[in-house]
Amino acid sequence: MKLFKDAGHLFRLAGVFLLGTLSFLAIRAFVVPHSFGQYGHYRGAAIAEIAAHPVHFAGHQTCETCHSDIAQTKSAGKHAQVNCEACHGPLAKHADDPSIDPGKPDVAVLCVRCHSASAARPKDFPQVDADQHSGGIPCTTCHQPHNPVIAAGGAK
């Protein structure tokens, strides 16, 4: 007795199944990014892509390589812990090309952002009612922003 009598349809079905599996594997290899699964269920290359975004804030260490004089003035005063770009804004472009003018911050807006009086602020943080304190005179008339204590030399 022949064991696989009339078994042709099974082989045909197996062939179709094999073909389907192979084409699935081929398509999958083509469309799934290679780094998918490198670290987990995601595209590993995405990490390097996100890390390659451009930097806008140069960081105070970069500023201080050129502006060491201001860093020194600042380190002696109350603003020692305030980083350059906290007031001057993002200046990576200026750091890359010093000919780009960083511009001066507008003290009328800048100082009161932190120092306008509000009971919501920590009690030990220096705050003033700007109108009463100076009557509209720019803060920099008396305070040198890099070391704001008036005894330290006043405006420069």
Binding site: I50, A51, H53, V55, F57, G59, N83, C87, P90
Partner: peptide, 22 residues
């Protein structure tokens, strides 16, 4: 992204850099 493009370069995040009081 926790400024992933910055922390991988040894910088701190933009928010930490700009925070005046630490």
């Amino acid at each position: 992204t926790l400024c992933y493009h910055r922390i991988t370069k040894g910088l701190t995040t933009a928010c930490c850099e700009a925070c005046p009081t630490g």
